[in-house]
Design a protein around this nucleic acid. Structure first.
Length: 356
DNA sequence: AAAGCGTGGGT
DNA sequence: TACCCAAGCTT
């Protein structure tokens, strides 16, 4: 439909008609192809899109392969215990994605019953699927004409139009969505490769640090290139300093086993197994403090964690399994890693205790 | 609307 | 080093 093009007049029509053609032609020669999720299976595309949120391709690949092997269909994923899904996700970060993925799988099985909708609006009602992810899924799986706006597209468009407003900025965001929709190709058949081409242009050519404008298929239309400031865009608002947080965790050790607890489902490392905080109730027994160890500082997006681990022990004949299994579980460091995975800093700590 | 949410890699 | 960024979403 030409309707969407009428209400966006911020760029010249003489090149807007060629935009998708140029990107697709470039992608055929220089784009990324044969990634594991390049399929028409909506389940696998959805899974990959969620994993790829704020996460690089090379990081995702091994996780994706393990997920597909463990749960080849959405029905299998929906039937899995959440704990198993979180374990498979551990190390990938942003664990709300795993919880949402699991909930969404159950929603899909229950409400869609094997009939995948081709409308991004329906996908966007699933937990963990926003506007851009929904559009990418439908474009790849069904050729739906829907615009994505990820970090790549944002950077490309900001440079293309020489937008100097510091980001994030809601007005600019709205404008970019409008432009992205206006630039869509006419045909459904072009959508999968067009969508991949946009992502690849940002990831391979129009990169953050030193964009390779010499290899850009649309450089002649780029305002930032013309002004010689492509590398300086997009501008960013200053960020608030990241607060430091001190956590004291306790490694209650009974023989070779430690006492593990599950974190609340909200907040940092939601739903993952870790060592308990010092102010949490200890397992049954009489405990004595032995050693204190500081882990290397761990940086999260909005916190800088300084974790201290106190080891506490008890004579082996005085510790026993809890009567209330919900409180925590005993496991060796090796088993904890194998069964649940652990947040990165705890996984590193556990590995030092798992040898021998 | 702005803050919260992981981790690995690049400069 | 200390940022920034990566196929963003949720509240």
């Amino acid at each position: 439909m030409a309707k969407k093009r009428e209400n966006c007049n911020s760029f010249p029509p003489q090149w807007q008609a060629l935009w998708a053609e140029r990107l697709i032609a470039w992608h055929r020669v220089s784009g990324r192809r044969n990634l594991p999720w390049h399929t028409r299976d909506p389940y696998r595309i959805w899974l990959s899109e969620v994993m790829l949120q704020q996460t690089q391709v090379t990081t995702v690949i091994p996780y994706y392969e393990r997920f597909v092997a463990a749960w080849p269909t959405v029905e299998a994923l929906a039937a899995a215990p959440l704990e198993a899904v979180l374990a498979a996700w551990s190390g990938l970060g942003y664990y709300a994605r795993a919880r949402n993925l699991h909930r969404a799988a159950q929603q899909i099985v229950r409400t869609w019953r094997g009939a995948w909708p081709h409308d991004p609006k329906q996908w966007a009602q699933l937990p963990g699927v926003g506007r851009s992810t929904a559009a990418a899924i439908c474009a790849f799986a069904f050729g739906t004409r829907a615009a994505i706006l990820d970090g790549n597209v944002e950077r490309v468009l900001v440079r293309l139009f020489g937008i100097a407003t510091p980001l994030p900025d809601s007005a600019v965001k709205r404008q970019l969505w409008q432009i992205a929709e206006a630039l869509l190709p006419e045909s459904n058949a072009a959508m999968p490769e067009y969508t991949q081409a946009q992502m690849d242009l940002g990831a391979l050519v129009c990169t953050r640090g030193t964009p390779n404008c010499a290899r850009c298929p649309v450089v002649e239309w780029c305002a930032a290139y013309a002004a010689g400031n492509a590398a300086a865009l997009p501008q960013r608002k200053a960020r608030a300093p990241v607060p430091e947080v001190d956590w004291t965790l306790r490694a209650y050790r009974c023989g070779t086993r430690y006492w593990w607890v599950r974190r609340p489902s909200q907040g940092i490392w939601g739903g993952l197994w870790t060592l308990p905080h010092a102010d949490e109730p200890p397992p049954p027994g009489t405990w004595q403090h032995t050693t204190t160890e500081a882990l290397p500082p761990h940086r999260l997006t909005h916190r800088r964690l300084r974790i201290t681990i106190e080891e506490w022990t008890t004579p082996p004949h005085l510790c026993y399994d809890s009567d209330s299994p919900a409180a925590g579980r005993w496991a060796s460091a090796r088993d904890a890693l194998a069964w649940w995975g652990l947040p990165r800093p705890l996984a590193a700590w556990a590995e030092t205790r798992a040898v021998s």
